[in-house]
Nucleic acid binder design. Sequence first.
DNA 1: GACGAATGCAACTGCTGTTGTTACACTTGG
DNA 2: CCAAGTGTAACAACAGCAGTTGCATTCGTC
Lengths: 142, 142
Amino acid sequence: MKRNSRLSLALHTLSHMAGEPNRVRTSTDIADHAGTNPVVVRRVLGKLREAGLLLSEKGHAGGWRLAKAADGITLADVYLALDERLVSGTATADQPSLCSVETGLHARVAEVLDDIEKSLVERLRETTITDVHPEGCIYCES
Amino acid sequence: MKRNSRLSLALHTLSHMAGEPNRVRTSTDIADHAGTNPVVVRRVLGKLREAGLLLSEKGHAGGWRLAKAADGITLADVYLALDERLVSGTATADQPSLCSVETGLHARVAEVLDDIEKSLVERLRETTITDVHPEGCIYCES
DNA sequence: GACGAATGCAACTGCTGTTGTTACACTTGG
DNA sequence: CCAAGTGTAACAACAGCAGTTGCATTCGTC
C-alpha cells in the first residue's frame, strides 16, 4: 500500500461491515481481507472507535462492529476521525518572517488552503458508507 | 516545512509574482523570500513551467516570471501541474485479491475516492491567483 | 481457576518520499 | 572572457508510515 492507505483501509473495512452489521469481526479477519496486519488494523480502527464510529470488545469472542447505521456514517466522519489534513497541512510559520509582506502572504495562502480543506470536508459529508456499499451490492450476497 | 510544501511554495511564489507581473525574479530571490533553497524553487517552478504557467530565462539577467495573467491561473492549474493527488493516491491493486467481493469493494472505494478527487479539483478551479493576492492587497504597495 | 482468543499498546525496523545541499554543465548578457 | 543565471544529477538527512514483535490485559469457556 502507498499513500492514503489509512483512509482506504478504513473505508474498505466499514464498507465490509455495512454488509453484515451484526457480525463481529476480529482484526485478524479484517487484516486478511485487506491484505495487511492485525496491528495496523487496530491502529486505524482505534481512531474510528475514538470517534464513535466503531465498537470493539476485548477478550474471547471479541472484535469489531459498527457503532451506528452505515448510512449515518459519512466520509467526513471517517476523514476527521483519522486526523487527515490533506490540503491544509500546517505548511506555515517556520521562521519569524523577514518582512510584513511575507507574513501577510503566508497567512493568506494558509487561509485559502484552509478554505479548500473545509470544502473538501463538506464534499465528504455528502457521501455515506452506504453509498460506498449499497444495499443491493452486486458483489455481496448477504 | 512539512507536508504540502510544494503546493504552498508554488502558491506563495505565484502570488508574489502577481503583485509585480513584469519583474523577473531569480530562484535565489524567491528562495530567500520563501525561506528555502534555490534548487528546491527551481524544482517546483520547473513543474509550473512545464504546465505553461511560468516562463524561465537562462543566462545572465535570467529568472522567472508569469506566463499569463494571474487571474487566468487557477489553483487547479497549479495542483495538477505539481502532479498532486491528495485523496486518490493509488491505494489499490497490491495483491491479486482473494475473492471477487474484495476486488469489487476495492474498486468501489477507489471509484469513490476518485470522485472526491475530481470534486477537489473542481473546487480548486474556482480560485485564481488573483484571489490569493488581490489587486489592492493591503500588504503590497506595488 | 486455567487456558485460549481477542484487544491495546509500546518499541523497533525498514521503506519511501521529500527537503536541503553540493557540484557541475550549460546559457547568456556585458 | 566572465559573472550571473537556469537545469540537472547525486547525495545526505529527515519524517512519516507500514509492518512486525512482544507483552499486558480482558473475557469467554472448559
